[in-house]
Design a protein around this nucleic acid. Structure first.
Lengths: 133, 133
DNA sequence: GTGTTTGCAAAGTGTTTGCAATTTA
DNA sequence: TAAATTGCAAACACTTTGCAAACAC
């Protein structure tokens, strides 16, 4: 699925040292298709997989991966962070009851006439959240 | 702009007792056109206007107003809440540097083919955030 | 009077940080 | 062995809550 070698390459490519924790977390993250994880979820999953890593390191690592564009941060909930392993442009359903994120089929939304940003500003991203319940 | 009488009416209409704090905050909120405020901002503004109210009450009041649909919550930032005095359907620019929300002209975005939610779920809202910087 | 609301301080939640110990190159 | 990274615990920012005093009806 996602080998140590691939993880190693990926980390080298972005200039992060391939430490035991980063390699393990990266494999866990990218080894199972597109996923939406909170730091807490990843930490639990890591422990379940016998990976010794502190929660602080999970936080730091997720932030670093996001800075390097290995991950993408999705903001749907004040007070909780989600990280998306799919960095391609796409949008989300957010199930407010289960607090679960679901990818929106890319084709399913078509936005036209995107507004021009105010003078001197440029668009960094367009995030569409369809809240469902 | 937004009189005590109007505020009184509005509170009665949603079944909230028109206390001194609620009346004052509601007038402050709705007396100046469409705005996007954090609890902290409203608390500061209240104090500046000689309104004695605790931060806890500002939080509680904003939540109550949101539950009653006098306000709308906008989620753009993990770890900070914004409340929008405009409850009509519309979307936002979010200036990531100044952390400011700006209404998007309603007409400026046109979304077609909104995705069908998963079986048994219904769409509660569609939130579009255009991040600028 | 009775039930609601307030303010305060304490507790809660999610996240970041300082620093000594460890690991990597 | 020099620089980067980790883990821990403490600090942090934001928000909610428990409870006695104040208030609305």
């Amino acid at each position: 699925m996602y080998s140590v070698e691939q993880a190693n390459e990926a980390l080298k490519a972005v200039g992060l040292r391939p430490t035991r924790q980063r390699l393990a977390l990266l494999q866990l993250l990218l080894g199972k298709g597109n996923r939406h994880l909170t730091p807490e979820m990843l930490h639990v999953e890591a422990k379940a997989n016998g990976i010794r890593v502190s929660l602080a390191t999970v936080y730091n690592t997720l932030n670093q991966f996001t800075d390097c564009r290995i991950l993408r941060r999705v903001i749907v909930d004040a007070g909780k962070s989600y990280f998306d392993t799919n960095t391609e442009p796409h949008h989300h359903f957010f199930d407010v009851r289960s607090e679960q994120l679901i990818d929106l089929p890319q084709a399913s939304i078509r936005c036209e006439d995107l507004p021009t940003p105010p003078e001197g500003k440029s668009v960094e991203s367009v995030d569409i959240i369809v809240r469902i319940g």
